Simulated assay, not measured.
Amino acid sequence: MALRVTFVAAAGSLSRLTERFEDDRPLDHAGWSDVQRVARELLPLAAADLRYCSPNPRSRDTGAGLGYAPLVQLALRDCGMGRWRGLTLGEAMAREPEAVDAWLADPRAAPHGGESLLGFIRRVGNWLDTRPPEDDCRVVAVAEPSVIRAALVYALKAPPATYWNIDVRSLSRVSVTGRAGRWSLRIEGVSARPSWM
């Protein structure tokens, strides 16, 4: 059997348009309520052999609230956004429209003085590739949606622009199975016979 890494999206994430770059805010009351609402469903993941989380407060709080007692991994931090840290995409666009356009168009660009999208995807991918190679090892990682999008782009060897087309919702989960350089996406859910059969 292959290594299985299940990513759980941190609670409290809003739509991408209202997300703040490198958001360091802790979970608010609504976020804690959401964690409590899904805790029973996600609690079995606490039995994973290894439990990790992003260093940001929402990911740490979500992991703790789900009973995972996760170990913080710096490699799972959000994309370094330089002078745009704490801004929404709309705020950055209002201040530096040409720079935002360049950043969205070129995955190698880092006009904000931080990390490029390509560098971010590689960093998260390197973390994924260095997980323990033992067969049947189960890993859970609570992370921001941006980190999970980067991991999926890397695992699927998709073009970097694919990052913008992946929607990761608060407290959703997705798994990848395999080992370094050979990952497959695993869709979670109940198996049922399609209605068209």
Rank of each mutant, 00 (worst) to 15 (best):
127 W>V: 05
196 W>C: 13
147 V>F: 00
181 G>I: 07
139 V>Q: 06
195 S>N: 08
163 Y>H: 13
100 V>K: 04
129 D>Q: 11
68 Y>S: 02
68 Y>C: 08
98 E>H: 13
119 G>V: 00
122 R>K: 14
6 T>N: 00
33 S>F: 04
8 V>C: 03
125 G>I: 02
15 S>M: 05
165 N>G: 15
119 G>C: 01
77 R>M: 04
55 P>M: 04
91 E>Q: 15
183 W>N: 09
167 D>Q: 06
29 H>M: 09
101 D>A: 15
103 W>G: 09
54 S>E: 01
69 A>M: 10
138 R>T: 15
72 V>T: 11
129 D>S: 13
69 A>C: 04
21 F>V: 08
31 G>E: 09
141 A>I: 04
148 I>K: 01
28 D>V: 06
27 L>P: 04
79 C>Q: 14
56 N>M: 12
41 E>H: 08
89 L>N: 06
69 A>L: 11
98 E>N: 13
182 R>T: 12
145 P>R: 03
171 L>E: 02
65 G>I: 09
126 N>E: 15
99 A>E: 14
41 E>V: 08
57 P>N: 04
68 Y>I: 00
56 N>Y: 12
2 A>W: 06
46 A>H: 03
27 L>C: 12
105 A>E: 08
76 L>D: 03
160 P>G: 14
121 I>P: 10
73 Q>G: 05
22 E>G: 02
193 R>W: 07
156 L>H: 08
8 V>W: 02
59 S>E: 03
114 G>V: 07
10 A>N: 04
34 D>S: 15
22 E>D: 12
42 L>K: 01
33 S>I: 07
43 L>D: 05
119 G>Y: 00
127 W>Y: 14
44 P>I: 06
137 C>Q: 13
103 W>R: 05
19 E>A: 09
96 E>T: 06
28 D>F: 01
136 D>L: 11
48 A>M: 03
93 M>A: 15
43 L>V: 01
184 S>I: 00
144 E>Y: 00
18 T>Y: 09
67 G>P: 05
128 L>R: 08
62 T>P: 04
156 L>P: 01
140 V>A: 03
146 S>E: 09
100 V>F: 14
176 V>M: 11
49 D>T: 12
44 P>E: 01
96 E>W: 14
158 A>C: 08
65 G>C: 06
182 R>E: 15
